[in-house]
Design a protein around this nucleic acid. Sequence first.
DNA 1: CGCTTAATTGATCAGGGTCAATCGTGGTGG
DNA 2: CCACCACGATTGACCCTGATCAATTAAGCG
Lengths: 227, 227
Amino acid sequence: MTALQMASNHPAPALNARRAWMATQNGPETLRTAGSVVQVAEGREIFAEGEDADVFFKVVSGVVRVCKFHSDGRRQIEAFHVAGDVFGFELSSERTLSAEAVSDCALISYRRRGIETLAQKDESITRQLFQYAMQNLAHAQSHALLLGRRGAGEKMASFLLSQAERSADGRTVHLAMTRQDIADYLGLTIETVSRSLSLLERRGIIVLTNIREVLLKKVDALEDMAA
Amino acid sequence: MTALQMASNHPAPALNARRAWMATQNGPETLRTAGSVVQVAEGREIFAEGEDADVFFKVVSGVVRVCKFHSDGRRQIEAFHVAGDVFGFELSSERTLSAEAVSDCALISYRRRGIETLAQKDESITRQLFQYAMQNLAHAQSHALLLGRRGAGEKMASFLLSQAERSADGRTVHLAMTRQDIADYLGLTIETVSRSLSLLERRGIIVLTNIREVLLKKVDALEDMAA
DNA sequence: CGCTTAATTGATCAGGGTCAATCGTGGTGG
DNA sequence: CCACCACGATTGACCCTGATCAATTAAGCG
């Protein structure tokens, strides 16, 4: 079984034959039939550093982390991708990063070669790909800026605000990832992440309703911290 | 006088036309006549956050820093761009970052609208733009990974190695930028940058021939540190 | 109801920031 | 030509934030 097949303990819905119909309805029309759906269970690897980068992915549902593993055992997370995001673009033919499912995921995989030939016929595909590349670029830049910030508090505030943007009401944040994931994304330790959240709660800026549910009570205070 | 014109105390060499020609010879044929050459003196602003992002640039010669200024006075440098690099791509119509000349620069500026219409006629331009976007993406990702690293030594080692890649022999690094620039790029202070370099020299890993010239004596030692 | 894993909290330590002094270098003018 | 000046870089002393080590609590799951 390959990494991209459904884990046996997670029933594969009979959607594969339907070719990502739901997902592509939200995406560009021209990509509708180009990809195939793939289900990935929580914690499973989607691709690994060093592999051949012959496909890229679009997230239908769930959360994906793209990360780098260092020789000393540390891990850095470059991005969390959610529904609508495209990831796995590579300039080289070899992967420079790994990707794993933070939660159970539905993805569409696109063959690079296939898309390239399609793009030659249809200019709107090229345009779409460019958009996705630019979105990834914008994210990577803002992530670099986030990591360059000094205090742990600044980082947490920025992180919570960016997560809230993805939320419907802009105040309720659902954390699909563990504290360790957050730590590896922010360049902190799990303990510092925990302490930062506790401190924010003690100051009345957030409420931790669940362990994975954060309610932002004072968005402006967070914005001041992240400034 | 606009920020993009040559400072009066820096004589504009009579090379402008030829400079542009040489630059575009290395680049895509189709971009040859699309841009106009611009000279920027050391320290001058190329564009600023909030401005209209109607043009982007290709570096012909010199070094450019792309950076963000924070309300508290701190500065973060997102990238140093050298000859052949393209910078100033934006997803939105408004600049999210600023750009300044680290040294005297020759740039080619391209109008976004103009290029877009050109790209509709010539598919190879689109391809080129995509390549440049992906190069910027790859850089931003590796920069984020760099900033996520723990020790100051690791950061300096990574930085020196990445600078050496741009060098001819891969061992001699010419630092166009100040220590402050390096600090703002690595998320460190000027003192820590200085100390890291001194330590590397005391350990015989590098030699600081000039204040702005570094000779890498033990590349493998640096690679171990950066691992 | 235990068992396992994640998260929180506490105590201590170290790396890098901050403040301050010195050194070095390049440019200017007497 | 050299003395002086200004700015960047280096070096030192001290402090503070976040890492590390360790213990406790909480939460899912069989």
